[in-house]
């Protein structure tokens, strides 16, 4: 076989065509419609943050819990090719003393939706997952309304064993649906495997503002690409180790060992963890301050993608 024959044979092989729905989806999403494009761009930013995986309907994964159990929340879409429809969303989990708030933000419509949940231990190593509506006043805040788009009701409590999964429907757009998959990872190890993967991990957090303790969440743990210090009625501080292409973040401090220290807007904040926070010996922290126009309330911590 000559080189020419070899090249011809390579060219002649018929590649199986892509699925028609793929082509249709691509055309729809790339149509030069300004609104659509804005939506896509916003979505794509979220996509990068969420780190969408190939061949997987997973959009994002967050977790919360304590030393003995962690609730891993995996947001998924169905069908897998509808990721485009949901890329615009950013998610967060805010751990509280009792209930944990799970929110998704849609920047295009300035709405947030989600639920609150908690995991209660049951005899025999099982857990009861309970749900309730978001408690924020819908007339308050930057996000004007909080809504359940599907279903219009809060899920009933569900008893599950460790590693068993349950789902919570979040939203749908007629052609696709968005849902959370909740799984309890019960472990004797202090940190679950999923938590170790996150760049920032805080255990039994204590936060000090100018030397004065303002948060003590003993028994809680949070992890994520970004840590949020939520100051209702004042501001939210979003802290990251890696800003990617986000150019509105400024270098505000350092994380070293079990301590994260930042200086921002004339205040010094020190966040202490009972275990190492980051992976490196000393890493720079980048921060962003955003106004928080929710009703005044206690300072809390949260994570986001």
């Amino acid at each position: 076989m000559t080189d020419l024959q070899l090249d011809q044979a390579l060219k002649a092989f018929t590649i199986p065509p892509p699925r028609p729905e793929w082509r249709h989806q691509m055309r729809t999403r790339l149509r030069p419609n300004p609104w659509m494009r804005r939506l896509a761009v916003a979505g794509l930013a979220a996509c990068a943050a969420l780190g969408a995986a190939f061949h997987d309907n997973k959009l994002s994964e967050l977790s919360f819990g304590d030393d003995h159990k962690r609730v891993v929340i995996t947001t998924r879409v169905d069908p897998v090719y509808s990721k485009f429809n949901w890329f615009r969303l950013a998610g967060s989990v805010t751990t509280g003393k009792d209930w944990t708030t799970r929110k998704l933000y849609d920047p295009s419509s300035e709405t947030a939706f989600g639920y609150e949940t908690r995991a209660l231990p049951l005899p025999g190593g099982r857990f009861r997952l309970e749900f309730q509506a978001l408690r924020e006043d819908p007339r308050q805040g930057r996000y004007k309304t909080y809504r359940w788009t599907s279903p219009d009701s809060i899920p009933s409590p569900v008893d599950i064993a460790p590693n068993e999964k349950t789902t919570v429907a979040l939203s749908h757009d007629g052609n696709s649906k968005l849902f959370d998959e909740l799984q309890i990872v019960s472990t004797t190890e202090p940190i679950s495997v999923s938590m170790r993967k996150e760049p920032l991990r805080i255990f039994n957090p204590r936060l000090f503002e100018d030397g004065k303790q303002i948060v003590d969440l003993k028994g809680s743990a949070l992890s994520g690409k970004a840590i949020m210090i939520l100051m209702p009625g004042e501001k939210n501080l979003i802290l990251r180790l890696d800003t990617g292409k986000k150019n509105d973040y400024l270098s505000v401090g350092w994380v070293e060992g079990n301590t994260l220290e930042i200086d921002i807007e004339d205040h010094h904040y020190r966040l202490e963890s009972s275990e190492k926070i980051g992976d490196g010996p000393r890493q720079q922290v980048f921060g962003l301050s955003k106004s928080n126009d929710e009703p005044k309330g206690p300072v809390n911590l949260g994570t986001r993608d």
Binding site: P18, M26, L30, A40, L44, F54, F84
Partner: peptide, 15 residues
Amino acid sequence: IAEDAVQECFVSCLK
């Protein structure tokens, strides 16, 4: 993989 790669390529370009 081929479909995803093309999709992700345009996703990155749009972004």
